[in-house]
Computed example of a mutant assay.
Amino acid sequence: MNILVIGGNRYFGKRLIALLRESGHGVTVLNRGSSPAPGGIEQLVADRDDEASLESVLAGRSFDVVVDQVCYTPRQAEIALRVFRTRTRRYVMTSTVEVYEYEDSAAPVAESALDLSAVTVDTALPWEDPEFLDAHYGEGKRQAEAVFAAGAPFAWASVRVAHVLGGSDDFTGRLDHYARRVRAAEPIAVPAVNHPATYVYVDEIAAFLAWAVASEFTGPVNAHSHGPLTTADICAEIEKHVGGRVVFRRVDVGEISPFSFARSYGMDNSRAVSLGYSFGHSAEWLAKAVAETVGASVAETAGEAS
């Protein structure tokens, strides 16, 4: 197939591009040009927020599938609807577990828990403000999904990605946050009631997206490995790797550490399983994920010290 990937030049996006290419697909990457596409991959340079720029760079082009790794707002979704209306037959949007931020449930949340038809879309909000967007990440994704669900002229799917772990190129710094504190036996702030969450290994989510590209399902689908993890599970593995000691400090008010949750962020992946995808279990990859990410951080720190 002829596939366009919007964004996706780092972390699991670059793994997705590699998998698509290895499968024999033609892959084109569209981004702002701040980072080059992998060798041998065609790159189109445009700002996805600039509709005229997109129209210009995509003139005369069409694709079997578009994978949108960087659709964060309803404005971006509306632009995509217009620009790709006649340029693709299938559109796969990378979404997030954070769309369920208002669906607080002790049970794993299924896709149907979020009624996209009831989501209020407000393109007048200051989505162009980085601080506002960061503070409303889940809401931006919710509204973007709602825009596609209400009027997509192509087959549309959203992949609601769980929290991702693993890889020496994890740019988030979240595991490093724990590694530094565990190594020094410094307190780790967690909520008084700390809920588990669902996770996915970096290579597995890339594989899932590649599978979604070749599939025909539409609508939202949850993507995560089996086996929810707690902060304690993750920190225990980090402790094995870096030494030190895990010390939790429970707080009722104030900032808490990443991957610690005052509410449940567990998803139900039954739909993806029923569609034919076979997920792994977090117990199979957690040690590897920690070793990759924390090991890279330790090496970098040692390099800086020398």
Rank of each mutant, 00 (worst) to 15 (best):
A59R: 12
D68H: 02
V70A: 12
A287G: 09
A214C: 13
I256T: 14
A179L: 00
V99T: 02
E300R: 01
I205W: 01
V83C: 09
L16I: 04
R142P: 00
L286G: 00
I238W: 00
G254L: 03
A150R: 02
V65F: 08
V182T: 04
L165H: 00
S23H: 04
E255A: 13
F279Q: 03
V66W: 06
S35H: 11
S34L: 07
T230K: 03
V200F: 03
S34K: 01
A124R: 08
N222A: 07
S62L: 13
M93W: 09
T172G: 07
H163P: 09
R48V: 03
A305F: 15
P130N: 12
A210F: 08
P108V: 03
A272S: 04
R271E: 14
N269I: 10
Y201E: 14
Y265H: 06
E186A: 14
S158P: 01
A212E: 14
Q43K: 02
E284V: 05
R15L: 04
R32L: 07
A212Y: 08
V29F: 15
W156K: 11
A77R: 02
Y277D: 09
V202A: 12
K288Q: 15
A262D: 05
A46E: 00
A299C: 04
Y199Q: 09
T28R: 10
N194K: 08
L175K: 01
V246G: 11
H136S: 08
A52Y: 09
E101Q: 09
A149L: 13
S168P: 02
V290Y: 01
S225R: 11
A59E: 15
V97C: 10
H177A: 04
R249T: 07
H163W: 13
V121W: 12
G40S: 12
G266L: 04
N31F: 07
V121G: 12
A206R: 01
P187C: 08
Q143H: 10
V109N: 14
A150F: 02
A106S: 12
H163C: 11
P228A: 13
E145T: 09
W285F: 11
A289G: 03
V92T: 09
A80Q: 06
P220G: 14
Q43F: 00
G167A: 07
S278F: 14
D169M: 14
Q143W: 07
L133I: 03
N31I: 06
R249P: 01
R75G: 11
F279L: 02
G138H: 13
E216M: 13
E101M: 06
Y199I: 07
T86E: 12
P153G: 12
P187T: 12
